[in-house]
Amino acid sequence: MDKLRAEYQSLETQKKELTATYKNCEIEVRNLKRKQENLNQYLGRTQTDPVQEQQTKNKNHSL
């Protein structure tokens, strides 16, 4: 039982670390997309990517 508890605790710790890493990556991707949009506007590239539009719509609906 102790061995299983120790393994479970180890897996829980790993899960927390992976979740934190994933959330940080999501934030970084959002920030990079915002920077890309700003650069595109600055460069006069106002055409948006249909996939990106759909993701934005989905994200806004989930809020």
Rank of each mutant, 00 (worst) to 15 (best):
V51R: 14
Q47Y: 15
L4C: 07
R34C: 03
I27E: 15
T46M: 04
A20W: 00
G44T: 05
S10R: 15
E7K: 15
P50H: 01
S10I: 11
T13Y: 05
D49E: 02
V51S: 11
K57L: 10
K57Q: 07
R30C: 02
L4K: 13
N60P: 01
L4G: 05
M1P: 05
T19P: 00
R5A: 07
L18D: 08
K3T: 09
T19M: 01
K59L: 07
Q54M: 06
K15Q: 03
K35V: 10
H61D: 07
E37H: 09
R5F: 04
P50Q: 02
A20T: 13
N38M: 05
E28I: 14
E53W: 02
N40R: 02
N60Q: 13
L43P: 00
N38H: 05
T48P: 00
Q47C: 15
A20E: 11
E12Q: 14
A20Q: 11
L32K: 07
Q14V: 09
E12C: 08
E28S: 15
R5M: 06
N40Q: 11
V29A: 09
L4Y: 12
E37N: 10
N24L: 14
T48E: 10
V29T: 08
L39C: 04
Q14P: 00
N58C: 09
N24V: 12
N31K: 11
Q9Y: 06
T48S: 08
G44M: 06
K23R: 03
R45P: 00
D2G: 05
M1A: 12
N38D: 06
K33F: 04
P50W: 01
Q54Y: 08
E37Q: 11
R45C: 07
E7R: 15
R30Q: 03
K23D: 01
Q54S: 06
C25G: 09
T19R: 02
T21P: 00
K16S: 03
Q36A: 11
V29P: 00
K15T: 03
I27T: 15
T48N: 01
Y22D: 07
H61I: 08
E37F: 03
L18H: 06
T19H: 02
T21C: 08
E53P: 00
V51H: 13
A6D: 09
L18N: 10
L11S: 04
N40H: 02
Q52R: 09
Q14W: 05
E7P: 00
T46V: 09
K3H: 06
E37S: 09
K16W: 01
R30A: 07
R5L: 08
D49G: 00
L39V: 05
C25S: 14
E28A: 15
K3W: 04
Y22S: 09
D2A: 08
K57N: 03
N24T: 14
G44Y: 04
Q54I: 07
Y8T: 11
A6H: 09
E26Q: 10
R34F: 03
K23V: 01
T21D: 12
G44D: 04
T13F: 04
L43Y: 09
I27D: 14
A20K: 10
L63V: 14
T46D: 07
C25V: 13
I27N: 15
D2W: 04
E26G: 01
H61K: 07
Q55G: 03
A20Y: 00
L11C: 02
T21M: 09
Q14Y: 08
L18Q: 13
R30L: 03
K59Y: 06
D2Y: 02
L4N: 13
